[in-house]
Design a protein around this nucleic acid. Structure first.
Length: 622
RNA sequence: GCCGCCGUAGCUCAGCUGGCCAGAGCGGGUGACUCGUAAUCACCAGGUCGCGGGUUCAAAUCCCGCCGGCGGCUCCA
């Protein structure tokens, strides 16, 4: 139903000629002063509920503009999708009746050609239009069959124990698996309120890593130099891992044609979560993963069995998902995020399973390097019942990798594109769970995108496709690292970042100005060795400088004074071995410190300090 | 998207039953101090009180709308 509301000094109309659907009219016309005219088009899907909502809307507007008199005026020209005349008249009458108790209501007769004169008041609220859609109708239309299937599909929840027992969640004893219990509760029941800003948000701001950008859309962050460095290191690390694993790195467009026949079908599955951009002729949606680009590329490629398994990788900076506003939190859930996205074409289910297993193991390694040990996240496996029945042994073997119980969600029918999926979920300090690594076996998209390979026998065949994000969104990794640091603090330890991700790895602090020169000399040696080092050259007391370095979570603090100059050694405070009460200090050779840091960072990427070496030369971003 | 709470200096916050010049600490600038491991001292400069309307003689303070944040519900390719 569409409404056009005009608040008028007066409105007058006159009946001219009947149409075939005209209702009887007693009067030839009418003039009303000080009136709210409601031009109304009744549309196809409208019913009593729509009329009821229209009544409420009209009441609200009438009260707002201070109108006591209302004219309901049938006006077909607001909609290309009109209801039949019978329904139209019925619902118009209903609106009239609905308004009668609080207003003086008039209704112009339906189905007549009429002339009219109106004098619009012209104040800001004098011209309004409304579109009324019955409850549920709008979404219903967007729901496709697949989504309806999802509603029908039932989930069954189990815990698969290291002893390969499949236990119903309700019957499982969570003793010793408190984190898994939190995760399961979050998954199945969701959890209660904790009224405070998540700790990682405070950290990302205080450490000047990242921040909200109110001038952009919600869920789009700005990254300060230190945050950009961490993100960049993670991105490089994960990309290297994928390439090492044999993936071909590619780059694909950020936006795609909404009307593209293949893409459209895929999009229809997911109601209105995308950003829409208009080009000159067409409308585009922003990608929410790298699937589109890679699948289209694979569709055009000539692939043979010799090329399989074929792995293709892209780091999506960015993927866009217009999540609902209430879901956005810090770095945990964003509308623009960076995600490593690898797709593997597998020849048959055996190969798909083998790859699934390989990538599962690789994800464990990646998370460990990022700073999350295997007991710091929980595994969920989601699977269709059929697939489970047919691959029981295989699924059970997944438990052996981490040797801990995992959550199994089983569906009685398939409504997503995959038959099997695992996720590693991080449970944060507020007991909320978020997925990090994930791999899925896709049995649908090869067909949809017409991706095929030529087999030994010369026949074209459909491969299976694995979707893999080794780490999950990079921002989410940072979130997990920061939340972990907070939990460390709660346990009485000093919060910290992994050494290879620490923006400053060593801070050199001269006891006073006199030792600045020596400090710089030492810093240069460290820098040349490939270590991120800076010098606190500010005119502050030693205590203050040490405190600042500590609140920045700097792993190694080297203090330079008279003793260091004469002995040519440095006194290093080692954060990892210190507590808030007692600092661990060690006198060491510069070379020893270099060796220690290089050793701990072995195999991880390195990037230069993205800030001036002298603290006095640095701006503060907040 | 819906409901609730919040939005004052770069940061953390006080003031908010309407009315004295809108405050503190941290941070920043200047000067003193030249210092041995989590905050040296003094002085100075910083505010469209989120934005837009309204009520009032008078609004940071009351009302409405919007924007942003947090929490809950819903949702999560």
């Amino acid at each position: 139903m569409k409404l056009l509301l005009i608040h008028a000094d007066f409105m007058e109309y006159e009946l001219k000629r009947k149409t075939s659907v005209a209702e009887d009219a007693k009067e030839k016309g009418k003039r009303l002063d000080e009136v709210l005219v409601v031009f109304t088009s009744v549309e196809k899907d409208d019913d009593e509920r729509t009329a009821g909502k229209a009544v409420e809307d009209i009441k609200e507007i009438a009260e707002k503009v201070g109108a006591e008199r209302i004219l309901v005026y049938p006006y077909a020209h607001l909609s290309p999708n009109l209801a039949d005349a019978k329904t139209g008249i019925k619902l118009l009458r209903e609106i009239e009746t609905g308004l009668k108790d609080s207003f003086e209501v008039h209704r112009a007769p339906f189905g007549w050609y009429k002339s009219f004169n109106i004098s619009c008041k012209g104040h800001p609220l004098s011209e309004l239009s409304r579109e009324i859609v019955a409850e549920g109708k709008e979404e219903e239309k967007e729901f496709t069959e697949a989504l309806k299937a999802e509603e029908k599909a039932k989930s069954y929840w189990y815990i698969l124990t290291p002893e390969k027992e499949l236990v119903e969640v309700e019957k499982f004893d969570f003793k010793g698996h408190e984190n898994l219990e939190k995760f399961v509760r979050y998954e199945i029941a969701k959890k209660r309120a904790v009224d405070r800003i998540p700790p990682h948000v405070e950290y990302m701001q205080r450490l000047q890593l990242a921040d909200y950008e109110p001038a952009s859309d919600s869920g789009h962050m700005r990254y300060y130099p230190k945050g950009r460095l961490i993100k960049s290191l993670l991105e490089t690390y994960i990309t290297d891992k994928c390439v090492e694993y044999g993936a071909m790195e590619v780059e694909t467009p950020l936006m795609y044609d909404r009307e593209h026949p293949t893409l459209r079908k895929y999009l229809e599955r997911f109601p209105a979560r995308q950003y829409i951009i208009s080009g000159d002729k067409r409308e585009f949606f922003l990608r929410f993963a790298a699937c589109f680009g890679q699948f289209l590329m694979k569709h055009d490629a000539i692939i043979t069995y010799k090329n399989l398994p074929l792995k293709m990788y892209e780091l999506t900076r960015y993927s866009f998902r217009k999540e609902q506003r209430g879901e956005l939190v810090g770095l945990r859930r964003l509308r623009a995020f960076t995600m490593p996205d690898m797709h593997t074409l597998a020849r048959d289910m055996e190969e798909a399973k083998q790859e699934f297993l390989n990538q599962y193991k690789l994800a464990v390694e990646v998370l460990r390097d990022i700073g999350l040990e295997s007991d710091e996240y929980e595994t969920a496996v989601r699977i269709t019942k059929d697939f489970y029945e047919e691959n029981r042994e295989f699924i059970h073997s997944l438990v052996d990798i981490l040797g801990r119980p995992i959550l199994i969600e089983m569906w009685d029918s398939r409504f997503f594109y995959f038959v099997l999926k695992f996720e590693f979920n991080f449970v944060d300090s507020l007991d909320k769970a978020s997925a990090l690594s994930t791999v899925q076996i896709d049995v649908e998209n090869a067909e949809r995108y017409d991706i095929s390979y030529v087999d030994v026998d010369g026949e074209k065949k459909r491969p299976y496709i694995l979707h893999c994000s080794l780490s999950g969104a990079v921002e989410r990794c940072i979130y997990a690292i920061l939340e972990k640091a907070y939990m460390k603090k709660e346990k009485g330890e000093l919060p910290s970042l992994p050494l290879w991700l620490s923006p400053t790895q060593v801070r050199v602090i001269p006891v006073s100005e006199k030792y600045l020169e020596k400090s710089v000399e030492i810093a240069e040696r460290l820098k040349d060795a490939g270590i991120r080092v800076d010098v606190d050259d500010r005119d502050e007391t030693l205590g203050k400088k040490v405190r600042d370095a500590s609140t920045e979570w700097i792993p190694f603090i080297a203090v330079i004074g008279e003793r260091e100059v004469t002995e040519n050694k440095i006194m290093v405070t080692i954060r990892e071995e210190s507590t808030l009460k007692r600092q661990k200090k060690e006198l060491m050779e510069v070379e020893d410190l270099i060796a220690r840091i290089k050793g701990e960072c072995e195999g991880k990427p390195f990037k230069q300090l993205p800030l001036p070496m002298f603290l006095s030369a640095r701006p503060s971003f907040r």
